[in-house]
Design a protein around this nucleic acid. Structure first.
Lengths: 218, 218
DNA sequence: ATTATCTATAGATCTATAGATAATGC
DNA sequence: ATTATCTATAGATCTATAGATAATGC
């Protein structure tokens, strides 16, 4: 009775991490007790301590394994080359769809909520620094815009301002449509806002019409 | 000894609310105990219960008295008339400064953090609904843009897209510069980002140069 | 008399540990 | 022998209440 027969379909450690993320995201870190986690996983509290030394270690692991995320991976590729290949407008659409698909996953929504709620704690623990993260993405996109402008793929704009104009509405859209875990996201409305943003953004950066008066094709 | 002499300079109820906002903002609602609050105020736990029936009532009161905020008051005036009077570009600057000054106050920063952290709890308690709040501001600004376009004060743009372009970077700037309570805001960098955003936004909505080829003064 | 505090404490809940025990893998 | 669980519990902390008492205001 002390140890149940092995059920191959389950992995307690994995379950602890998954249930914990869920609980932390919905009730906060301090709002979720080891008892709550144990109940959600279906074991006793003491079993949790076999896998993790304490509650903090669970949080650390949950966030550690989520790492910088798929988004950062995307940002590390040679974006300029890709954009050159597929054309900036097409790239915007493709990237927009990819980002939304990622952000709309349950896991990303939970992570976002956890980070919104616990960012001071996470920063203090050296686990995640929202501001730094944003600034780094901002710098990265800024470089891309600079290079795109050099190559004439977009018009000559202040890259800093363009990045604010690009990222700001993305954040807003994410907050509006995906931050409330108690509401099933309205994906149609989300995509609508997203393409409204991307189209409108494109108009502000697309190369000027050639001085000859001949418009290039939209 | 049971009741100290009155000190006219203090108001326990007020102190409870102020310290609580501070604690809730820095450690979260569940992360702040009645004991913590009592210690911060300088009374015993039981004294708190003389002023509020329970911890939840403190949260409710803190948020209730912060109400919809000065921002909403601003949004209810006849904006179009004001903009018409002072000119859209000047209005943008004035409003930008006013918003930043408000957002940078300690109280607003604490409220923002509290709302970021506790939004599910606040929504469930019927105290504050971030998404609804944002959508309502969004709708309001959308109307203003529509009217401004009708009057020719800005160019004919999709008002929905313009609102996203306007509000998005504002939110981003707020998150970058004001969301971390452990960092003294760099007001210079903040104003810099803000004016970069407002200038850049203005370029995307200012009336087109007259077809005559005469540029109006910037 | 009323108000605002105090001391003291009940009872719930929380984190964490000790030690027992059954299943697993060599 | 090791691993993963269990039962049981210590000790800290939390919310909330009861009842005493001093200050305040009529």
């Amino acid at each position: 009775m002390a140890r149940p027969k092995k059920d191959d379909t389950r992995d307690t450690r994995r379950d602890i991490l998954d249930r914990s993320l869920e609980l932390f995201a919905t009730h906060g870190f301090t709002g979720s007790s080891m008892r709550d986690i144990a109940r959600a996983v279906g074991v006793r509290e003491s079993a949790l301590y076999h896998h993790f030394p304490n509650k903090n270690a669970i949080l650390t692991t949950v966030l550690g394994e989520s790492g910088p995320g798929a988004l950062n991976a995307m940002m590390t590729g040679d974006l300029v080359r890709i954009i050159e290949a597929m054309g900036p407008q097409q790239f915007l659409r493709t990237m927009g769809e990819a980002v939304v698909a990622l952000w709309a996953t349950e896991r990303e929504r939970h992570l976002m909520r956890l980070i919104m709620a616990e960012s001071p704690r996470l920063k203090q623990a050296g686990l995640f620094d929202v501001q730094k993260q944003i600034q780094s993405v901002r710098a990265r996109i800024g470089e891309v815009f600079t290079k795109l402008a050099e190559r004439g793929l977009i018009r000559q704009v202040d890259p800093d301002a363009a990045v604010l104009r690009f990222m700001g509405p993305m954040l807003l859209i994410r907050v509006i449509h995906l931050a409330d875990l108690n509401v099933t996201p309205d994906m149609a409305a989300l995509r609508d806002d997203l393409s409204r943003h991307l189209d409108s953004f494109w108009l502000t950066v697309r190369p000027e019409a050639p001085p000859s008066g001949r418009r290039r094709r939209a």
